[in-house]
């Protein structure tokens, strides 16, 4: 379980994170909706250990994360771009984390081949990143993160650069993979529908402040999330069609 207590962060005197507190349960995916500049990425970077909070406490399964460097946290941060290593093929990209840990070759082969199947990438192992489509690249990026069995996975708008159709299939794939692997994850996005689709719980980030909703209905009822506006838009559109 990840517990965040009163996290604050400033950049050049401007508050980017203001008193953030929430809890992420094990095997749960928390969706955080927020516009650009709302502090979503900073929050994820603080959790990953890539940025330092000015104050507050981060606890993962009771362990204080603050003094733990990024490479020992077991918290993987995935970017909008797949960021595959251009000099490595698909197999080696996925195997990367295990190679860092100097795992035996048989274990690496077994795990990578298993992931290639589960991520629907059969026959792609020897391809180089530039030979893959956007969706395939993102699958490889998931594989590279999942293979080290992260304690928490942080996803920073991972489907932002994909076309609508690929995005839909990737959302379904991630939901399935998250369930299969029992992932504990935070998924940030600026897309309302994506946030609602991906999250077991939902949060909204505005001006460095985070509000976590008790349930889906609470999230929808809050005007600031834009869910009611979206619903009204579709109702009105339906009404227009009917009157025509």
């Amino acid at each position: 379980m990840l517990t965040i207590k009163n996290i604050n962060k400033q950049y050049k005197g401007e508050a980017v994170l203001q008193g953030l507190s929430f809890t992420l349960r094990a095997h749960e995916m928390l969706s955080i909706l927020g516009r650009s500049g709302s502090g979503k990425t900073t929050l994820l970077k603080v959790l990953a250990g890539l940025e330092t909070a000015d104050s507050g406490q981060l606890l993962l399964d009771g362990q204080d994360l603050s003094p733990v460097p990024a490479n020992q946290r077991g918290v993987v941060y995935l970017y909008q771009e797949a960021l595959l290593f251009p000099h490595l093929n698909v197999f080696e990209n996925i195997a990367f984390g295990l190679r860092l840990r100097r795992r035996p070759e048989t274990e690496i082969k077994e795990k990578v081949n298993g992931l290639l199947q589960r991520l629907e990438l059969p026959g792609q192992a020897r391809k180089m990143p530039e030979q893959l489509s956007g969706g395939q690249r993102q699958r490889v990026a998931f594989g590279r993160a999942l293979i080290i069995e992260p304690r928490v996975l942080l996803l920073d708008e991972p489907f932002g650069a994909l076309d609508a159709e690929t995005r839909r299939s990737m959302q379904q794939l991630l939901k399935r993979v998250a369930k299969d692997f029992g992932l504990t994850a935070i998924f940030v996005t600026h897309d309302l529908k994506e946030a609602m689709l991906m999250g077991d719980r939902l949060g909204m980030m505005q001006n460095g402040q985070l509000k976590i909703y008790g349930n889906r209905a609470e999230f929808i009822a809050d005007e600031s999330t834009g869910a009611l506006d979206e619903a009204r838009f579709w109702t009105d559109l339906q009404g227009l069609k009917l009157t025509k």
Binding site: G49, A70, G97, L100, I148
Partner: peptide, 16 residues
């Protein structure tokens, strides 16, 4: 920034 992100990624994957 891309290279910097790659470097950060290596760290979160467990690399020094």
């Amino acid at each position: 920034e891309r290279l910097r992100s790659m470097e950060e990624l290596v760290k979160t994957l467990g690399g020094s």
